[in-house]
């Protein structure tokens, strides 16, 4: 399987391009929040650390998945590194999958280190072991699923459009996807048939990132249910498969002039 060397090389590229340096910023943010919030009561403090920590994990991750994701294919074509690669016994779909899983690996390492950081910060503010230190992990997993979806979206745009336009479209989908539940609500309240059908269609076509958002509830001490996690995993798997299939279809037809 040629996907593995491509993925590992993509991961190595991220590491050498200092993508993981964002972790330093994240740690500074957590330390700053812990010191600043030291005045608050213990329960409030841990709630805010969970909220800030997981939200930062999500935002940093989304920024990486969009800004690195949009360059995954574009950079290879622009710098012509793809020329010598595709001449080798490598299918185009293997190349796309390798690039995708390489960035997912980067995001995975990034997310695990961040979640560890949050757990350690909670250990510090709680002055010992506490269930909340474990409860953040299922939510971190959901965030990672969301990042995988965002990476697939960025990769799709990267396969046919310029980085600037890809970034714009990916951000647009991220915003829409975050509030896509409102589309369904709007569809239910409007009377007109055409608008209703359009809103419903958009709701099903656009990514529903609300499926992966459990940050606020975790800050209040809740954990996502197994059913929710299973459904989110299924949704992500299906959505990512569809996006990668579309990316491969576009990429298969491309001429590298």
């Amino acid at each position: 399987m040629k996907v593995v060397p491509i993925a590992l090389n993509t991961f190595r590229e991220s590491v050498r391009d200092r993508v993981l340096y964002n972790l330093i910023l994240f740690v500074l943010l957590l330390v700053g929040a812990s010191i600043f919030l030291g005045e608050l009561s213990m329960s409030q403090e841990s709630k805010i650390i969970v909220d800030i920590g997981l939200s930062a994990m999500r935002i940093f991750g989304v920024l990486i998945s969009i800004f690195i994701g949009i360059g995954l294919v574009y950079k290879e074509i622009d710098k012509r590194t793809i020329y010598s690669l595709l001449a080798k016994p490598l299918h185009r779909h293997e190349f796309i999958l390798g690039k995708y899983f390489g960035l997912c690996l980067t995001l995975f390492v990034n997310s695990v280190v961040m979640a560890l950081g949050i757990s350690l910060a909670l250990l510090f503010v709680k002055g010992g072991a506490d269930p909340i230190q474990i409860k953040i992990w299922p939510t971190a997993y959901l965030i990672f699923l969301e990042l995988m979806v965002m990476t697939a979206i960025s990769l799709l745009f990267s396969s046919f459009s310029s980085p600037a336009l890809s970034a714009l479209l990916a951000f647009f989908l991220f915003i829409i996807g975050t509030f896509s539940a409102d589309l369904k609500l709007f569809a239910a309240t409007v009377g007109s048939g055409v608008v209703k059908v359009m809103c419903q269609a958009l709701y099903y076509v656009l990514p529903n990132l609300a499926n992966f958002n459990f940050i606020m509830a975790t800050a209040h001490g809740n954990t996502p249910s197994v059913g929710m996690m299973g459904a989110a995993t299924m949704y992500a798997a299906l959505y990512i498969s569809a996006l990668l299939a579309a990316t491969v279809m576009i990429f298969q037809r491309r001429n590298f002039k």
Partner: peptide
């Protein structure tokens, strides 16, 4: 494809790799 080699015009390779890493990477693809 496994029996041919290709050098593109004005080749550009991953500049974050060393020559040894580049060749190892290509060897893995083969």
């Amino acid at each position: 494809r496994a029996r041919i080699g290709y050098l593109p015009e004005q080749p550009y390779f991953y500049d974050y790799l060393t020559a040894r890493e580049l060749l190892n990477y290509c060897a893995k693809i083969f």
